[in-house]
């Protein structure tokens, strides 16, 4: 590791994704949204996608469409951006997924569960293995992906921090 490299914390907002290299840390906060973390252990590059909904459908045709809002467009875009900073490296990405809670109890549809189901299906189709997952519940998640180790620290509101 370059001695002069300064670790920085990168924040990911809703409907966005960020990628970077070690020793950076990428952080986001989730409710019903799902956070998809992809990481290459050999190249120490990775990223987090903070997606809101499962499938883009006709929304993909609209002006100003945000790929990261949806699982089916966001996950390929996350991989695409990782390729850009990892062009010659092996594509040994593994996935860790978080969030997908049901925060507002009055809502009938469980958006979080729908999102998780879509993410699992899309990652499977892309041949990317999910090595860790912490999803569901009724409280928010705060996750940080350490690009030096590939570990994700996850703190669900009201609980102790866990490492995945």
């Amino acid at each position: 590791m370059d001695q002069t490299t300064v670790k920085k914390e990168i924040i990911v907002g809703m409907a966005d994704l960020k990628v970077s290299k070690a020793p950076d840390i990428i952080t986001t906060s989730l409710g019903s949204c799902i956070g998809v973390c992809l990481y290459s252990p050999t190249q120490k590059v990775g990223g987090i996608l903070h997606l809101m909904m499962a499938y883009a459908g006709p929304a993909a045709q609209r002006e100003g469409f945000k790929k990261a809002k949806f699982a089916d467009t966001g996950i390929p875009e996350l991989i695409h951006q990782l390729q850009a900073i990892n062009s010659s490296g092996p594509k040994d990405y593994v996935a860790k997924i978080f969030g997908g809670g049901k925060i507002l109890h009055g809502i009938v549809r469980n958006i979080g569960a729908d999102n998780e189901s879509a993410v699992r299906s899309i990652l499977k189709d892309l041949g990317i293995r999910i090595v860790a997952a912490r999803t569901g519940g009724g409280k928010g998640y705060r996750i940080s992906l350490n690009l030096d180790t590939g570990k994700v620290s996850c703190r669900i509101f009201g609980a102790e921090s866990e490492e995945f």
Binding site: S29, G31, M52, I103, G106, K139, G140, R142, F157
Partner: peptide, 16 residues
């Protein structure tokens, strides 16, 4: 509806 959670979770669910 009252929610006790992270400010970021409360805000993101609000605008969702």
């Amino acid at each position: 509806t009252v929610i006790n959670d992270y400010a970021s979770t409360v805000f993101t669910e609000y605008i969702m």
